[in-house]
């Protein structure tokens, strides 16, 4: 491919992924309110536009128009840095996700993944581990006891669940034999979805994804009954909006990662029997991926409006005493299964 077309194509792809991420996150706020209303037997937002479809726009305008307050004693730079970092790390993760198979136009291959790092899984993990800084810095710079406690809770929770998450990914890497997201997605062609190979790892990963995104039942950092608003107590206007919005972006990206790791990514069984045009298949793959992502976003909301919040000691017990031993057990079982031939030989000799 010519270098200039390559650059232009990648720029367009980056912009498209960024725009879609923001669009999905915006409409997740609307979906969240509608689903909450549905689960609580209410109607939900219905004033702005037909079925309240313009509600996210109205919310955004409200967020921008509100007066912005920076507490006089807080550290101004860090106070601004907090929500910016939260937003930045949330947007960085979409880079390695394979959104679909490659398109072929004029014999040239256009990959629907921004970049295929050979350490894609680790890249994802390092960005996730950076995500905690935004909340911590924001909570500390507010110079408020509630904010500080919220920030510290968030960081300890995220560190605890990162361990189990990493261990569950290790079992996945053992069976797939690669750290590249593209190959992990490609390997799940047909019915070889990783959820069928790694059911326990998948469950642990999903639980940890809930904890990493600070979603209920793990939303202790912003627990209203104990901490007022948690780490964003002192924030107003669009800075508060960034914190809340980053949560929805994280939810979207987590859903995309769960779908790619465990639920086949852009693959859908049986489609290849009827449709043979590779470009059509690639586009359909993107559609299937977004269907799966929508399901997981719905699942995130479903859980939020169904389960009550954990107590803090329950959260730590679940993370350290249940999930980490389980994920280590998962690694051992996976290893034993992969080496079963050698192990059987050892005992039959």
């Amino acid at each position: 491919m010519v270098f200039s077309t390559y650059i232009i194509y990648k720029a367009i792809l980056v912009l498209a992924v960024f725009a879609i991420t923001l669009l999905v996150a915006t409409y997740s706020t609307y979906a969240e309110r509608k689903i909450a209303a549905f689960l609580q037997d209410r109607i939900g937002p219905d004033r702005a536009g037909p079925f309240g479809i313009l509600q996210p726009l109205a919310d955004a305008v409200k967020m921008f128009m509100k007066e912005e307050m920076i507490p006089s004693v807080s550290n101004k730079w860090l106070f601004i840095l907090g929500p910016s970092l939260a937003m930045l790390t949330a947007c960085l993760t979409g880079v390695v996700i394979p959104w679909g198979k490659s398109l072929f136009i004029d014999g040239q291959e256009f990959s629907l993944q921004i970049t295929d790092l050979n350490i894609g899984v680790l890249y994802l993990f390092s960005v996730v581990s950076m995500g905690v800084y935004g909340i911590m810095i924001g909570g500390w710079a507010s110079n408020n006891k509630y904010s500080l406690l919220g920030g510290i809770r968030a960081s300890s929770q995220m560190i605890s669940y990162e361990v189990a998450m990493g261990l569950s990914i290790i079992a996945l890497v053992m069976t797939t034999g690669t750290l590249s997201m593209k190959e992990i997605a490609a390997q799940q062609h047909g019915w070889h979805w990783n959820v069928l190979i790694q059911p326990l790892g998948c469950l642990i990963f999903i639980i940890c994804a809930f904890a990493e995104t600070n979603r209920a039942p793990f939303d202790l950092p912003e627990c209203e009954t104990e901490l007022v608003g948690g780490y964003h107590t002192e924030y107003s206007s669009m800075k508060l909006g960034f914190f809340l919005f980053a949560e929805y972006i994280n939810m979207f990206i987590s859903s995309a990662v769960i779908s790619t790791f465990y639920f086949g990514g852009y693959n859908m069984p049986f489609v290849g029997r009827w449709i043979h045009d590779p470009n059509m298949l690639a586009i359909l793959g993107v559609v299937f991926l977004f269907v799966k992502i929508s399901f997981f976003i719905f699942f995130f909301m479903w859980v939020r409006w169904t389960l009550p919040r954990f107590r803090y000691d329950q959260l730590m017990n679940l993370g350290w005493k249940i999930l980490i031993p389980l994920s280590i057990l998962n690694i051992v079982i996976t290893g034993a299964w992969m080496m079963r031939g050698e192990i059987i030989q050892l005992f039959t000799k």
Partner: peptide
């Protein structure tokens, strides 16, 4: 050495420094 770079960020910046920050804030 991409692997080293990623692990460096995960371990040092993502875990150890968060603990440092945690302790200093407390």
């Amino acid at each position: 050495a991409q692997f080293l770079a990623a692990v460096h960020i995960i371990v040092y910046a993502g875990a150890i420094m968060v603990l440092f920050l945690f302790v200093i804030m407390l």
